[in-house]
């Protein structure tokens, strides 16, 4: 009983458990990535995962982008009015969206929608012996279940973010023209005037990384589910929490890498 409250032992156990999970994650990632370079490939699974991540997430990402663009225009205008800098609204909206808010918000929405579903599906397969069944049927479960999802995540999220960028700018344009009386043509000209290719490209690269992270966390926590429905539920929560934190942390790291002067 005293050992439970021994802080040093507790710290040691937690550290060992954390390092063990990191090791498992490293091996899991390596096995999944190896599947990208060696057949068999599973095009049907890639297609299904692509539809889940890309097509079926489009409505929620589109709504998020439009409202974010609208709020951003509203906030920027009212805030910048204090400095008589309302004319910067178009540039602020487009740079905020392409560099940060597009990839991060789309990533968080997809993590909640798709990362949790991946963890739940693979976790259920684990606790109902379907993953063991794959092995007995001459199929590597990681290549069959994980590699297609990683690939789909890396490709689908940048496409979603590209659409989100456009819709976010459209939302901002709507507010700027209808609410604050900007001329639509002038607004769009200003939008493009200060937009550089690195702004869009950095956002797309970020989103590819986020897509990879979302799929990896969903698959990893689902794959190591144990103990029935409760285990699957815990895996789902862990997948979303881990993906969300990693998205925010990696966003800082990638921003630092792209835009350090």
């Amino acid at each position: 009983m005293t050992r439970i409250f021994d802080p040093i032992a507790l710290l040691g156990r937690s550290t060992i458990a954390f390092i063990t999970v990191l090791g498992e994650l490293g091996l899991f990632t390596a096995a999944a990535l190896a599947g990208l370079f060696r057949p068999p490939y599973y095009p049907r699974n890639i297609g299904r995962a692509f539809a889940d991540i890309g097509f079926f997430s489009l409505p929620v990402v589109a709504m998020t982008a439009i409202f974010t663009g609208m709020v951003l225009a509203l906030q920027t205008y009212t805030g910048f009015a204090r400095f008589d800098a309302q004319s910067a609204i178009a540039s602020v909206v487009v740079l905020s969206l392409t560099r940060e808010l597009g990839p991060v918000l789309a990533g968080l929405m997809v993590a909640g929608r798709v990362g949790s579903a991946m963890a739940a599906e693979i976790g259920t397969m684990r606790v109902t012996d379907q993953i063991d069944a794959l092995t007995t049927l001459a199929t590597d479960p990681i290549r069959y279940l994980v590699t297609p999802r990683l690939l789909a995540g890396i490709i689908a999220l940048p496409l979603l973010v590209l659409i989100a960028d456009v819709l976010g700018v459209a939302g901002g344009t709507l507010v700027a023209t209808l609410r604050f009386g900007f001329n639509a043509t002038d607004y769009l000209r200003q939008t493009l005037q200060h937009l550089h290719s690195i702004d869009v490209v950095s956002g797309l690269i970020k989103s590819a990384v986020f897509g990879f992270v979302i799929a990896l966390m969903g698959c990893f926590f689902g794959y190591r589910s144990r103990g029935g429905a409760q285990g699957v539920g815990a895996a789902t929560t862990s997948a979303v929490v881990a993906a969300s934190i990693l998205i925010l942390g990696l966003d800082y790291v990638l921003t630092q890498a792209f835009f350090t002067v």
Binding site: P40, R48, M125, D129, Q130, A133, L137, A138
Partner: peptide, 23 residues
């Protein structure tokens, strides 16, 4: 397997021939 462990995402015939197709 004890509870069948059939693949939910595949049809019955795809489940039956899964191993043959994989090999």
């Amino acid at each position: 397997f004890q509870n069948g462990a059939l693949f939910d995402s595949e049809s019955v015939w795809e489940n039956v021939t899964f191993g043959l197709l994989a090999r």
